[in-house]
Nucleic acid binder design. Structure first.
Length: 223
DNA sequence: GACCAGGCACATC
DNA sequence: GATGTGCATGGT
């Protein structure tokens, strides 16, 4: 049984409860918007700690700029990305993303920001290796566009509490948040970060539900 | 030693 | 269009 209230009401209440429980998260955990772009690819199905190691390698090699990354060979790049896992595919994906960034904006994220959300999203999704979550992470956290990021933690938490059905498509979960909340970058930014914190603490595949703040809003998990 | 982590593309049915 | 599989490292 889910808690009383429309899904929209529940999501608004959940945000307040998570913010009170965890405090502001001030995401994304990257030092610059460009680091966010790189991190969005490297974190695919990977622990953030390993992503940090790969980013440290890029910094040590003075390769953490769009131009430098473009000029590295895939093999050279793959060696630097090694700690983040899937390093051959990620080298290919990062090169494709850098190629697009250089071609469309000369490597300048500020220039990219002038384009519309819809156009940027369409172009990102057309790149090999940039799917919906990676595209939305870049759009929200690096480019400041109001698009909601749905990740494994978000899906798991919502599904467990009956707000979405198992296997709900990305767009459906995203639309649920975007139709329930004011379309604000700061809110989408903070909410996603809070959901990741919730996920890390309580919504692992083997849930640890004791003390989970979401229970107060969404009721007992049933999956 | 098994399972998991802030996905995605591609093959196969 | 749904489902399965490869990609790979490091922490628990």
């Amino acid at each position: 049984m889910s808690a009383p209230g429309t899904p929209a009401e529940l999501l608004v209440r959940l945000y307040r409860v998570l913010l009170a429980a965890f405090g502001p998260q001030h995401w994304w955990p990257g030092e610059t918007p460009f680091e966010v772009v790189v991190g969005a690819v490297l974190t695919q199905n990977t622990n953030w700690r390993n992503v940090e190691r790969a980013i440290a390698n890029l910094k040590a090699a003075k390769a953490l700029t769009p131009g430098r990354l473009t000029h590295l060979s895939e093999e050279q790049l793959a060696r630097l990305l090694q700690p983040s896992g899937f390093f051959r595919v990620k080298a290919r994906r990062l090169k494709a993303l850098m190629g697009w960034l250089m071609e469309t904006a000369g490597g300048d994220l500020g220039r990219l920001r002038r384009r519309s959300l819809a156009r940027l999203r369409r172009e990102l999704l057309a790149l090999p290796g940039t799917g919906e979550e990676t595209a939305d992470s870049i759009l929200l956290y690096a480019l400041g566009k109001p698009t909601f990021v749905v990740d494994a933690y978000t899906r798991r938490a919502l599904c467990r509490h009956g707000l979405t059905e198992p296997g709900a498509p990305y767009q459906k979960v995203k639309a649920l948040f975007e139709s329930s909340l004011p379309r604000q970058v700061s809110l989408f930014n903070e909410y996603h970060a809070l959901l990741v914190e919730l996920g890390k603490r309580f919504c692992r595949p083997q849930p640890r539900c004791a003390g989970c703040p979401a229970r107060a809003v969404l009721g007992e998990p049933h999956l």
